[in-house]
Simulated assay, not measured.
Amino acid sequence: MRGTEATIPVAYALGRLGFLHLLAVSAVVAAARIAFNAASGAYLKTLVGPDDLLVANARFESTDWSSIAVGPPLGGAAIGQFGPVTAVVADALSYLFSALSLTAIRGGREEHPRKAERSRVRTRDFLDGWRHLLSHPTLRALYLNNMLVTGLIMATEPLLAVLLLRQLGLPPWQYGLAFAAPCVGGLIGSRLASRVVARYGQHQILRTVGTLRAIWLIGLAFVRPGVDGLLTVIAVELAIIISMSLYNPVLATYRLENTPRHRIARTLSAWSIGQQASIAVFTALGGLLAGITSPRTALTVAGLLILASPLLLPRRDHTDQATREPAAPAEQEATV
């Protein structure tokens, strides 16, 4: 489905590229991302043993932050040298290469359900992921906390762009540096995940680091013009990214460990949909508030609201609940 990006240069060449086309492509890409994340999480559990799940998730996290650190500067250089359409073509080709790489994977311990079972997708199956998340006390708390934290953090990006570029007059290259340089923190946090969990325990890390990732955002409200403001943004983003990159693999591992195999894809789909919806809602509300007041005021409100997010974190672990039972044949996951 990411191949829909290839329609952009085609439409551009035909003189048909418009805003509605871009919106349609964005919607398809977002849906594809949700489906891929759900499928990849379910597939990972069939490829990797329980003892290696945290290591695998930490490596994925490290790769994600590496791509974020390297991708935008390379993309900006490509756009400046060859134009935006060429960059979109390169992006579309990268997903083709990714698909070819996935076909090279062999292995997996989970047997595919019978064809008759795969074709039977009922309405209640669509809601099964939310039922599992909301019925498990720890997953429910982590889910609600994640929607609030992710929504508020992502809502600050357009606000910060307006504040830095328009109001404080930061040069574009400094703005790019302010977001690219802190991504190094993603490598630091993801590398620490296995060690700190081994030392302090999974639940303690979820509580402690889940709290730490919420306390830094308020610093963006105090950004000033000049080099001091640039360093403030880099420091705040670095602290947030280190916390997130340490927290995310632990969260992903806990989620897989406490979700029966036949519900993983549905649960991860529900998680992704909730997360994307929260980002959209908080971004819209942040933009509305900034329009009425100012971007700095909206950043301050986001920074204060996120301080309440640790209250949603689970106070004790409920892993002992019966969430790891083997899947019954009749309840196997439908394959999309």
Rank of each mutant, 00 (worst) to 15 (best):
R2V: 01
P9R: 03
L17P: 02
H21T: 08
L22W: 13
S26D: 13
A31V: 15
R33A: 14
I34Y: 02
I34E: 00
A39M: 10
V48T: 14
D51C: 00
D52H: 11
L53S: 03
L54C: 05
L54K: 04
A58S: 15
R59S: 06
S62V: 00
D64P: 00
I68Y: 14
G71I: 09
P73H: 08
A77V: 12
A78M: 14
F82Q: 05
A87E: 10
A87T: 14
S94L: 06
S98G: 05
S98L: 12
S98C: 09
T103S: 12
R106L: 03
R109D: 13
E110Y: 10
E111G: 09
E111R: 14
H112I: 08
P113K: 07
R114M: 03
K115V: 10
D125W: 05
L127A: 15
L127F: 15
G129L: 08
W130K: 07
H132D: 12
P137F: 09
R140G: 03
R140F: 06
L144W: 12
N145F: 15
N146Y: 12
M147I: 07
L148V: 14
V149W: 01
T150F: 09
G151E: 08
I153R: 12
I153G: 01
P158C: 08
V162D: 09
G169S: 11
P182E: 02
S190V: 06
L192M: 14
Q204P: 00
T208H: 05
T211M: 05
L212V: 14
A214C: 15
I215H: 04
I215Q: 03
W216P: 03
G219I: 08
F222N: 01
G226C: 05
G226V: 06
V227W: 11
V227N: 01
D228N: 06
L231S: 01
V233D: 07
V233F: 06
I242F: 01
M244Q: 11
L246D: 00
L251K: 13
A252H: 13
Y254F: 15
I264E: 11
I264Y: 03
S269P: 00
S272Y: 09
G286S: 06
G287Y: 06
L289Q: 01
A290D: 05
G291S: 13
I292W: 14
S294C: 04
L299P: 11
V301N: 13
V301D: 11
G303C: 13
I306F: 10
S309V: 06
L311K: 07
L312R: 08
L313F: 06
R315W: 14
T319P: 00
D320M: 10
A322M: 10
R324G: 12
E325N: 11
A330F: 01
Q332A: 12
A334P: 01
V336Q: 00
